[in-house]
């Protein structure tokens, strides 16, 4: 699979791009000033990682496209992020729950990628893993505080978890791209990341006094690009507007 690495890098870069964009929508509107700062900080980290992953994707593709071309000039069907990260923010609890479910996956994934046989991938992972570790610490703590806090916050967090749960499984679904990268030693085995994720999630949800949903149905189609949600098109309409409206301009 000659394009497997390119596809894989898009998955990594689109996850951080789309989630970073979603979080940046909170700017100036968080419940507490410290949360405003933390959300902006997380979004900033994710945008930085996006620049690196999509930059490498562009390099690997070697068709003269840049990271910006990939971010701003691809259409919905070419995006490779998991569906969960493109879901709208909802309330603060929903945003934090989505962040937590992603962080709990992102950290072990990056940890594994540090040992990638591709030096460039390993370097980006090494830089990103520190950020992801901080993100997880923070989102897990917040999930615990809000799950445990008051009756209302508990109810909101449980409802966020129930809504997001069917979107969490896609992170661990594998296809030919994952298989090819696993064989070449570029990417870690997702079946080994899953138990790490489950352990973090179970531990955190227990502390947060939340009930893990039993249904393991997983929506899919994001990371393969087969079928995104309606929400992604709206996000891209906003995110890509300037580049699309004024083609070729330098900003």
């Amino acid at each position: 699979m000659p394009d497997a690495l390119f596809e894989y890098l898009l998955r990594l870069g689109d996850n951080t791009l789309v989630l970073g964009h979603r979080i940046s929508e909170w700017c100036g509107k968080a419940p507490i000033l410290e949360e405003d700062i933390a959300l902006a900080n997380t979004a900033l980290d994710l945008m930085g990682q996006t620049q690196l992953w999509l930059g490498l994707a562009a390099e690997v593709e070697s068709k003269g496209r840049s990271a910006d071309d990939l971010a701003f000039l691809r259409d919905v069907w070419d995006f490779r992020n998991v569906l969960m990260v493109e879901r709208p923010n909802g309330d603060f609890g929903h945003t934090i729950m989505r962040q937590f479910l992603f962080d709990a996956f992102h950290l072990p994934l990056l940890d594994g990628l540090q040992n990638s046989s591709d030096q460039r991938v390993a370097e980006i992972a090494e830089k990103s893993v520190k950020e992801a570790s901080y993100h997880l610490e923070r989102s897990a703590d917040t999930v615990i505080a809000l799950g445990d806090g008051t009756e209302e916050s508990h109810r909101r967090m449980q409802s966020a978890l129930d809504l997001l749960w069917p979107f969490s499984g896609e992170m661990f679904l594998t296809d030919a791209v994952d298989d090819a990268l696993l064989v070449s030693g570029i990417a870690p085995d997702l079946s080994q990341i899953k138990p790490i994720w489950s352990k973090t999630v179970e531990k955190t949800l227990r502390e947060a006094t939340l009930t893990t949903p039993e249904d393991d149905f997983a929506h899919s189609g994001g990371k393969t690009g087969r079928q995104h949600t309606e929400d992604l098109g709206h996000m891209l309409a906003q995110m890509q507007w300037l580049q699309r409206a004024y083609p070729g301009a330098s900003w």
């Binding site: 949360e35 603060f92 008051t150």
Partner: peptide, 19 residues
């Protein structure tokens, strides 16, 4: 926008204090 952020964030602030 500020009032909305403050009002809609009330449950978060209360929950964090309670926790």
């Amino acid at each position: 926008a500020r009032r909305k952020a403050w009002d809609e964030g009330a449950w978060v602030r209360e929950a964090m204090l309670a926790h």
